[in-house]
Write a protein that binds this DNA or RNA. Structure first.
Lengths: 178, 178
DNA sequence: TGACGCATGTAATGCGTTACATGATTGC
DNA sequence: GCAATCATGTAACGCATTACATGCGTCA
């Protein structure tokens, strides 16, 4: 039930409406960690309010409701963050493709790996300047800005996949014909 | 509909029964890429047979049925492997926790990051020798063994997360009190 | 006043997990 | 003969996506 914990974690940064939270999922959170559409978020927020994990903080125009964490919500978030099971849920189409590279003909496999490497290189060119900018703007007296750690994860992730794709290309090419 | 493609990719390595495929998902495939239990696999194989993507190859004792790819199945697998959408499905509880590290008190955040770093270090100690063993046993005239590329991905992935956790710890500690 | 974006919801369908259910073979 | 494992399936429930549905507020 990770959607619930994702919402708790986001609300820990400060009150937000279902609409705000939906847009957060559209960004890098949804891209690298967990996806959710508004049609799941609104019902879940209502259930969390029933369970006493969040409360409606403010109501605004157009029926806008911002939610805030309760003490129970913060306790549950902390419990989930610190006590995680050994076997966690992962579901990643890209990694699945990596597992199945060898089901392709050698030429196709090469093309796929080259595509992955290029994709990673492009993403790195996009992400690294963003991180540098965050760092340049950052006042060292303030806490690390939200998203900076996740962004760093993204950079390192792409570097790892990039290196993996190049290594795999070499490895596939190195097969000695008999 | 990635379960279907996972099954196609696995069957591309050679015919297998639903039971065999279920055990494959119990291993590193399920751990890093995609999970599925037998209760989804059997119905899906039947649907894939109806759709002409696979055929029953052999029947064995205890009602065992091995499935093999058809030409249509191989075509569909190739299509899926080579033409992937920009926005792919990712769902990873660990990465979600990474995104939410900053929702914790500094002490808790530190403990969590230390836990992640230790976890990665342990997994690396387990995985690296396995990969070295695979390489030592590998006849260079044979194609790269199935799972070797994925295993390398696992190693690099853990190295990346390990480095990220250490970097994050430093970064959190570096906040200058005002 | 019309278009766009904000804002919230429900319904239908499909995918995934857990639990239920059954029976055959092999090895001890 | 009994236990473990092989082997396949269905049912119930919950979660996720897509589509359907509605209405308010702001700005040009």
């Amino acid at each position: 039930m990770s959607l619930r914990h994702a919402l708790l974690g986001l609300l820990a940064q400060g009150p937000a409406s279902g609409y705000d939270l939906t847009r957060t999922f559209d960004g890098s959170l949804g891209r690298y960690a967990w996806q959710a559409g508004h049609s799941r978020i609104y019902p879940e927020l209502n259930k969390m309010a029933d369970a006493g994990l969040v409360v409606v903080d403010e109501t605004g125009p157009r029926g806008r409701k911002t939610y805030a964490l309760t003490d129970d919500g913060r306790t549950e978030l902390r419990r989930w963050m610190l006590h995680w099971p050994e076997q966690t849920t992962v579901r990643d189409e890209t990694v699945l493709r990596m597992f199945l590279v060898q089901s392709l003909e050698p030429d196709d496999a090469r093309r796929l790996l080259e595509g992955i490497a290029e994709h990673c290189a492009r993403e790195l060119q996009r992400l690294r300047p963003l991180m540098d900018e965050l760092d340049a703007e950052h006042d060292p007296h303030e806490p690390v800005p939200f998203g900076r750690l996740a962004g760093e994860y993204g950079v390192r992730q792409y570097e790892a996949v990039h290196g993996w794709a190049l290594w795999s290309l070499e490895r596939l090419a190195a097969t000695v014909p008999s």
